[in-house]
Every structure is written in structure tokens, then in C-alpha cells.
Design a protein around this nucleic acid. Structure first.
Lengths: 233, 233
DNA sequence: GAGTGGTCTAGACCACGGA
DNA sequence: CCGTGGTCTAGACCACTCA
């Protein structure tokens, strides 16, 4: 723990814990911080990156470093969509549609949905923003036959509600997979981050009654924004 | 994607995918790589760190950079211990006992186990090594009254088996929590890594029949070594 | 003891954000 | 337009690993 960047980390943590900074607040510029810690930007950034990896700080690309708020708690075993989960934790949510179109299912989607190669599926790309910070890049692959006209509907709200209310289809079981990965080029901009930022990925397959897979989703979360918790009964 | 370190990443990925390197194999030294890519160590390390964050490479502290093997797949909803899960995936496992003693339960353990403050619990720290690579630092907190003499037993094998065979106690339900964090000072050495390395943390509470919490565990996984998958029926 | 990775310095230029 | 973060250079010293 004698490394300089470790000492800087502790100093920053101390200041945050003392309440000098509050969630979502921007830190002083790198040059200022480096000077005040008596070091160079390279070493300062080593400390900041490490705090980012710990989920204590996050960065908005080219905008600066910010204090991470508490993560949203999510239970993959629950049948609730993010909308209800996030609202129940008194956080604000807005959803931005990136793109939605019919396309050839990729390997993963084919396998999850039990489709033959070259089958077309509805692909919806969206970004969810919590408390004014974009934190999830969500991709939904949906079997097209069951959902005629889906692409013409308002896709900026809960898809689960849409399936249920407009198509009378409700997920009754699901599989999921969780792993650590990172943000790729296409997702970086809408998440205000840069390629390579740590992400927690949640993949889910939704089955309707009759054990028919109708939706496969991949959600890329900024890793400090979510915590998985499940209470099995 | 014009950044130099991004190009280097792609070159390395290419070589790995072409089979130039196999799992657990060590890359050439940083100085050699930097020279062969026509750059400095700083930029080269930027590329390597990014590949580490993606789970494609891992490092052994002061020993070098290695190719990540496929992750172990783990289902937190299953009642199996790591031992059986890992063996079923044809990976070798060995367990090293770091320390085991009776100690005051910390806040987390108290809450999970429903204990009053200042209650003593059995705390067991172990490191699990998969295919000769240490990848999990596991801490188990166990209520002491139910397990007399536990500290004198062989703690280098499955605790679940021990509970069942020696104390006739079997977990029937559990809660769990999963989040991204990183490796702290004390865990760094036994994991052959350095403080700050990304980790995926799995916390679990085990309940016996009668809904009595008897074990709380926190497992710090090197993030590239595990993938959570669950199939709910 | 040679070579390694871990850390650090003191600069530099660029593209983008925000006023 | 100025200041920012993103990237990069060309060195350096140290503690450790391994032959």
C-alpha cells in the first residue's frame, strides 16, 4: 500500500466519505487534482481508474469524473421489468430508443429462441437512463410471428407491459446468465462512455406458457450501477 | 477505433483467435511486445489492461500476462458446492486454507445470520485453485453453536459435505447477491494478483430447514474465471 | 544476477465539450 | 475559443521472479 496511486485513492475515498462530494457530483479536473496531490496526470489517472473499477467513481467521456450513486438492486428471479424495479427504488427512469428493426437473428439469439438459422427477429436497441445518467444498453430480440405490428408501437416504455396488454403474452419462466464484460464501440456513445468500460452483462430468455421462448435480451450495465440480489423462497 | 492501443488489442485478439496462443499460455514480455508493436510500454499496457477487463487476458502479479481459459459456469440457484460444479466441467480444483478461527461477526455477517452484535462466528478463509490458477478467495461465516469442533476438521474440501455428513445439516434455501468489485490487499497475494484487480463477488446465505440461517459466504472471483448461468424451472 | 512487471515522471498533441 | 479528458512518448527506478 505504499504506491502513490494507492495513497491518492485513500485520500479521495476519505473526502467522499466525509461528504465533501455527493452522488453525481463532478470532481475537479485531472490537472488540478494531479497538482494538488503533487503528482502527474498519469499517476492520478491510475488512482481514478482504480476507483472506477471499484465502482466508487464513474466517468462521462471527455466530461470528467463523477461520484457513483448507490447501485440499483435487481432480482433476476423476479418477473418485474426494470421500469417497476427502478421506480420502486425511488430512482427516475427514462428510455431512449436507439433502433428497432427486423433483422437476421445472430447465433446467440437463434440458440436462445430455438430458431433456425436465417430466421428474422425483431431487434430493439434501447438505452435506459437512471437519474439522468445513461447506465444500460439493452438489446431485445423478439420472435416476430407472435408480435405483429410491434415495431410501430411506442417502444420507449416497458416491453413486458406491451407484450401483456397488446398481445396477451406473459413470460412465465426464464433463464438468465450474468457475466463481466465491457462496453463496445457502438454502445459507448449512447452511454456517454468509451469503449472498454467495465460492464455487467445480463442475458435473459423469456418463455411463455407452453415453454415457448419468445424473447431474448442482453443488457449491458455500467458495472457500478447495478447489484444483483435474489431471495429464493 | 483509431487509437493505437485499440489497434494493438485487435492484433493480439487476432493472434489468440488464430491459435498462436492457448489457454494459460504466457505472452512475451511487455518490452518485447511494445517493441514489436512499435510503441512504448505505457501504451502497450493500456491495451493489455483493456483485454484484461474484457476477460481475455489475466495477469499473475510480476509474472506476466496470460491467456484466459474459458470461465467456469456456475448456477447460484443450484444447491451444489463449487467442488462438484467445477469437477463436472472437467476442471481440476484444489483448495488452500488461509485461516480459520472464531471471531466477532462483522456487520454483514450479523445481518445475514440474524445475530446480535458481538456474537462470535466461525470464519473460514480459503482460496480455490482451478487448473493450477488461483481464482476465488472464499470467506465463510458459520454460526458456531450448530457446528461444534468444526475448526478441527479438514477444511480443505467441500464444506457443504461436511455440514451434511458430520452435522446432518443441509441447506434448503438461500439468498444471494452478485456484484462487481475488486480484490483488496489481503486477498491479492493468495490470488497471485494485485490489489484492485476486477472481481465478481457472490454473497450467499444458507438456511437450514426451519428457515434458520447457518452460513453466510462471500466469494471473490477473478472476474474472467466465472460466468453465472441459471435455468429456472 | 538478469530480466520482469509495477510504478512514476515530465512533458506533448489532439478532439471534443461547453461557454 | 479555452479547458477538458484521451492518448502517447521516452525515458527512469524498484521489487520481485526465476534460472
Amino acid at each position: 500500500m505504499t504506491a502513490k496511486y494507492q495513497e491518492i485513492k485513500e485520500l479521495i475515498i476519505e473526502q467522499v466519505d466525509q461528504g465533501q462530494f455527493s452522488a453525481h457530483q463532478r470532481l475537479p479536473s485531472e490537472r488540478l487534482l494531479a497538482e494538488s496531490f503533487g503528482t502527474t496526470r498519469v499517476t492520478l489517472r491510475e488512482a481514478l481508474s482504480s476507483l472506477e473499477a471499484e465502482g466508487r467513481l464513474y466517468r462521462e467521456v471527455r466530461r470528467g469524473w463523477f461520484i457513483s450513486p448507490l447501485p440499483v438492486v435487481y432480482d433476476p428471479n423476479s418477473r418485474l421489468g426494470y421500469e417497476k424495479v427502478i421506480e420502486s427504488q425511488n430512482r427516475s427512469l427514462s428510455t431512449l430508443l436507439i433502433k428497432a428493426k427486423l433483422e437476421l437473428a445472430n447465433t446467440k439469439a437463434c440458440r436462445a429462441l430455438g430458431l433456425k438459422a436465417f430466421t428474422k427477429v425483431i431487434a430493439i436497441h434501447r438505452v435506459h437512463t437512471i437519474d439522468n445518467r445513461p447506465v444500460v444498453y439493452a438489446i431485445n430480440y423478439i420472435t416476430s410471428e407472435l408480435f405483429p405490428g410491434l415495431l410501430k408501437r411506442d417502444l420507449s416504455h416497458s416491453l413486458i407491459d406491451l407484450y401483456k396488454e397488446q398481445y396477451n403474452i406473459e413470460g412465465v419462466t426464464q433463464n438468465y446468465s450474468i457475466y463481466a464484460s465491457n462496453i463496445d464501440h457502438d454502445m459507448a456513445n449512447p452511454l456517454h462512455t468509451k469503449q472498454g468500460t467495465q460492464a455487467l452483462v445480463i442475458e435473459k430468455t423469456n418463455f411463455s406458457e407452453g415453454n415457448c421462448a419468445f424473447e431474448f435480451s442482453i443488457d449491458y450495465w455500467r458495472h457500478d450501477a447495478i447489484r444483483i440480489e435474489s431471495y429464493i423462497i
